[in-house]
Design a binder for these strands. Structure first.
Lengths: 353, 353
DNA sequence: ACAGCCGTAGCAAGCGCTTTCTATACGGTA
DNA sequence: TACCGTATAGAAAGCGCTTGCTACGGCTGT
């Protein structure tokens, strides 16, 4: 059978309580005793029983990281950064103490999955929780989330948002790090306007996401400030945050309005699809059509994509530290993370005429 | 305080045992009783205490997925596919039964982290485990892994390898899905040779990884079969699996051997860096230099990269099913997953002269 | 010299659930 | 009517750990 605390205690000739204390390091134990215990642990290859420990201590060392799409580097980068701060393996502290198990859960963008994962993590009595990605603008779901998060917070789970707008009327969330999607959207379109573009197509993300809305609002703000009025909605197409969507939407845009001189995509992945569509129509980038993205994922530099840089790694790492209580939350628990215009070769002045 | 099983039992006027049985659905309970219990559960917003349950039942609903780099879509795609099969949220089965918590752990390619995560998962009494990515060719680490995995298997954890060569002399692993990296490497180089290339640079991955070695061996096999002998090692440069490495190594290769007409990269990400370096040297792709990658990640189609396609999603999904026991392991527990040459615009015949 | 402390270690009571074994009720059969 | 099998529910014994409290020996202070 598996080795238990009692076995270790017997071998070290101490009581189980003492072994527990040595392992947790939260109670004075004489050095000689400690060494004896540690030797026994090694000899027997003892591994603590997590469930038993969590049950007795009413806490667990599980930390959840929720992401919309684990195959998307946008989330992968944040999750990886958060996970590295949360520690667990490789946090340098060695065996004792804060060995958290940072786990990432993939919601696939589905609200139900998000809630179910929350329940699962609640069931595991997770010590902390990092939620990444924009929120869904659906009041029923929002309410459900608020209630769920309140319960988790009640049970002692530290909750941090990363790249997600703060939850209104809730003190369950320790800190919210929100990207300045609106500001980023604005400067990007201002850049295009500055180059002389007037007919700008927009390939937006899914309708009901805050990220989508904020980026789009920034775009529209810039247009209005410049006195440019698009043909209502006809220059905007919505779709999921993936390459295929960028491709399809761009083809559609080009069909509707052959005169567009620039295409702004909801994010870099979508922009890649847009580039493909533009090229397939025999148009050159940026001579005939400028294309811009958002996020500045690693591959964007290779695509020469003009985009808006989001400090994903730093934000993820900070979220991780906040979740672990290693860093003070920003005033009011809310921080807005600036987005920075990054100009590359995919945008240029439109052809005259 | 939090709601416990006993509270639910009291409200439903049954014993705790009955509530447990309703929740687990593994024992006959009269319909009327069941309904009463479920109503009480709803009324009280009861959430099972995972640790307590795992302790008593000596099993847990945690399933671990280990990846080298969560920010790399190569792993993200596999992990996402596995996670979707493992279920947890959204597996359609509703609340009862197999609600597993599939969690992905990021080792960052570090052997120590890999082992520590294994211990952490062992501590949690994980129900299953999927290990992705190539193995490290270090006998000490291999031995440690074998021992650890044996212990996990002993404790009832189902272990599956995905994109990882089988562990010799071990029956701890239920199934190993290995990519045909050697075959893929071979056909890729054969493609280049067929186009007429003779001076082919190779930007390899880290030395001590099986994936690196197998791909490189395939490459060398093709060269030898064609009677092409490179200048020993001078056309091969090793580096990590990232873009920067591809960039640096390619610059180095171009310096060493200005006559190279083609560059094969360890994977698509590295290839992207290679492309950047080639272009920066004022050379065109594929006119002056052909570039090829490996994996066929989603962005590769946009980069027009000739590469070797690996069915990452399918492999991940299959690994997930195997971990859940939803699918029979292949004969001998080992399956080799074919790699398919995918020709795009980044390779062409070398210029004559 | 004695009371009071400090530093350690052990005792034992749970933590909230699962599960074996036992009890009861009911219906059919002899 | 007596008996037994079947279906359903409860009692209670843990699962392996943590931790409040107690115990005990050696020191210090008066």
């Amino acid at each position: 059978m598996t080795v238990t605390l009692a076995d270790v205690a017997a071998r070290a000739r101490v009581s189980p309580a003492t072994v527990s204390r040595v392992l947790n390091g939260n109670y004075p134990v004489a050095t000689s005793t400690r060494e004896r215990v540690l030797r026994a642990v090694d000899d027997l290859d003892y591994v603590l029983n997590g469930p038993a420990s969590s049950l007795a201590a009413a806490t667990s060392d599980l930390v959840g990281i929720l992401v919309n799409d684990i195959a998307d580097p946008f989330f992968g980068i944040m999750a990886g950064a958060a996970q590295s701060e949360i520690g667990g393996p490789g946090d340098g502290t060695g065996r004792a103490g804060g060995e958290k198990l940072a786990v990432v859960c993939n919601t696939g963008g589905s609200p139900e999955r998000e809630l179910t994962y929350l329940t699962l993590l609640q069931r595991q009595r997770a010590a902390a929780l990092v939620l990444t990605g924009g929120a869904l603008e659906d009041s029923a779901h929002q309410a459900a989330m608020t209630a769920k998060l309140a319960k988790l917070a009640d049970a002692g789970t530290r909750i941090v948002f990363c790249g997600r707008p703060p939850l209104p009327d809730s003190d369950a969330v320790v800190a919210s790090l929100a990207f300045d999607n609106r500001g980023g959207g604005r400067v990007l379109t201002e850049h295009l306007l500055g180059l002389g573009h007037r007919r700008i197509g927009y390939v937006a993300g899914p309708l009901e996401r805050t990220t989508t809305r904020h980026r789009l609002e920034g775009h529209r703000e810039a247009l209005e400030a410049a006195g440019v009025h698009g043909d209502g909605e006809s220059l905007t197409v919505h779709g999921p945050y993936d390459r295929g969507s960028g491709y399809d939407a761009t083809l559609e845009l080009l069909r509707r309005q052959p005169g567009v001189t620039a295409i702004v995509a909801a994010n870099d992945t979508v922009a890649l699809g847009a580039c493909a569509a533009v090229r397939e129509r025999g148009l050159r980038i940026p001579e005939d059509v400028s294309v811009a993205g958002f996020d500045d994922l690693p591959f964007s530099v290779d695509a020469g994509l003009t985009t808006v840089r989001l400090p994903l790694f730093d934000a993820g790492a900070r979220a991780g530290r906040l979740a672990m209580g290693k860093e003070e939350p920003p005033p009011g628990g809310i921080a807005t993370i600036p987005a920075e215009l990054t100009v590359r070769g995919s945008t240029a002045a439109p052809r005259v005429g």
